[in-house]
Design a protein around this nucleic acid. Structure first.
Lengths: 326, 326
DNA sequence: CGACGGCCGGACAACGTTGTCATACTCTCT
DNA sequence: AGAGAGTATGACAACGTTGTCCGGCCGTCG
């Protein structure tokens, strides 16, 4: 900017005024400045400009579990779109479900003075964010609530969804229902499992530990778990898969074996209606989830100081049948 | 930092030294500073620190077409992972195939002084980036080459892939092959179409405009195009879908109609092997694409000034059969 | 006992901007 | 003609850091 000022023969401040479109600059002088800007290829330094007077950085931070997962990339996309309307860019990072990494990333984002944070939490303690919130960086949690912190959250009705899924199976006469889940360390999984158990209890079906299989991390382990459970004495006649990766593995294994066990999966996914066997899923509106959370965040950024809210969005049973005809 | 210095009773510079882990600070004094840091909740301002002496912003910019598309979100994920190893974060934005928007986003990223840019180009003129490259912001193009600019590019062998796909159809006896594509405005589509025509010419099959259908933007229009082409006189006996969204629409429509037309799709996608009818696809290693591009970018950031390179990665025909048994 | 080198701490300027204030000039109105 | 208002421009400080340099203290060696 100093160079531009020198070349145009004006003061630094005049260049600043022209570059920012402020009034009170004579036409001729503005033209001279613009010519110098063009000649030198000058470009305003956004960081310096944000630094001065602590203005907003026009950036928001997004922490998700894994960007390559369609659920999270949809969230990232919706948020980025909404941000763009405010000339704000999105800094996104994956926690990979690692609490340590999550904290590092969050601290990094804070030290970059993002205008706000959108977090799908992996950790079990977010108290370190309290000071950031006080210092003016609002946080909205997405999909799962934060822990040890009072902040907005936009969640899904995981418990109700799983309950409806199991009800559907029970209504079809199933009594031995295998439940496949990742880990109860994750809030969503705990809720979904609780919902499944609600429905079983409602139906007067007792708890059978052999029918609940944890530690199912991906399609391959899901397939293995299904195979194992089906070869036990008195195998399940139906399965509830508590996320989409598990569902995919289960579909694949049931199909491979030609099994007619029933299957309901949590999370809809693209092409789920094209699976080689009927598949009923518990779906929800991922875009709406992201939309609500982003709205809430921008409201906070714009100064909304009301009490933290928790929004719970409904799920929907997409009934496409349960099992292949015998 | 001034406040911390005052509270600890030391100078500004000493606080800076402690915060940055520089040597030559007495233990007792460092402890006092750390106590003050903790008490005030001080956090280093990354922007100010980068501003001083024009250091790197530890940020790279990624422009893709649409973050919600698995192809692009995989790229974003791989890049973000590699960036994290260098304590660098990813600013990602979607151009939505809009050249104007692409240019705006790129200029914005430059004004934020990102360390480098990774671009899946939508526009048809990237000459405005030349000055940025000269000023030290390296650019690597991904999936498609940049225009009017000498820069690195990591591409796929689109032409060869499409050629192999059509060859496979021809080998099975097909002579009337419908080609479904988005728009020839996009480099990849042009190349894929050219590859298809190469193979047809090699087989001595003349060009028939009625068999090439452009403007197919999404699964719904793909389904409509398939339906339309199948109801024309002398319909195609096979289809080549030039991207995964088109493939999905085509699968769906062919399945719905119970058609036994053959189908080859460009781009592999998750669950493609679980489609309700055989589906042969032209696949490639998206992660490798992203990996190579990111490597190249970091090499440039680290000062590699060698001539711009263009890397072309191979595709692979994943032959899973062509059509349901009659 | 004085010189020297290593360690430690601080003053100051600079990074690229912009807000604040001061100044000089041009009108218009009494 | 002088006051008052408004416009156009510039000087300067400040945003939060860190690099440079300088000086004081300590111990050691000739």
């Amino acid at each position: 900017m100093v160079d531009v000022a020198r070349l145009a023969g004006v003061s630094l401040k005049t260049v600043s005024r022209v570059v920012n479109g402020e009034p009170h600059v004579q036409r001729a002088m503005a033209d001279r400045v613009l010519a110098a800007v063009a000649e030198l290829g000058f470009q305003r330094n956004h960081m310096a400009s944000a630094l001065r007077a602590g203005r907003a950085s026009a950036t928001i931070g997004l922490i998700i579990e894994e960007l390559a997962n369609p659920f999270y990339s949809t969230i990232a996309h919706v948020t980025a779109e909404m941000a763009r309307e405010r000339d704000t860019l999105l800094l996104s990072a994956s926690s990979e479900e690692d609490p340590v990494r999550e904290e590092q990333l969050l601290r990094d984002l804070c030290s970059r003075r993002v205008d706000g944070l959108l977090v799908v939490p992996a950790g079990c303690d977010h108290s370190f964010l309290n000071s950031q919130v006080e210092m003016g960086i609002p946080v909205v949690f997405l999909d799962r609530p934060g822990t040890n912190i009072e902040a907005d959250a936009v969640l899904l009705d995981n418990r109700g969804g799983a309950r409806n899924g199991v009800r559907r199976l029970v209504a079809d006469g199933h009594r031995r229902i295998g439940v496949l889940l990742d880990t109860v360390d994750v809030h969503t999984m705990r809720e979904r499992l609780a919902g499944a158990q609600d429905a079983l209890a409602d139906a007067g079906i007792g708890y059978d530990g052999a029918l609940v299989r944890g530690g199912v991390r991906d399609p391959a382990t899901a397939a293995a778990a299904v195979a194992d459970m089906l070869t036990q004495p008195s195998p399940p006649t139906a399965f509830l898969a508590l996320n989409n990766r598990i569902t995919v593995g289960a579909v694949q294994e049931l199909w491979r074996r030609g099994s007619d066990a029933a299957l309901v999966g949590f999370d809809d996914f693209e092409l789920s209606h094209l699976m080689p066997r009927p598949l009923t899923v518990i779906g929800y509106d991922t875009r709406e989830l992201a939309r609500r959370a982003t709205q809430l965040l921008f409201a906070r950024i714009d100064g909304d100081r009301s009490r933290p809210r928790t929004v719970v969005l409904p799920t929907e049973l997409l009934d496409r049948g349960l099992a292949p005809a015998r």
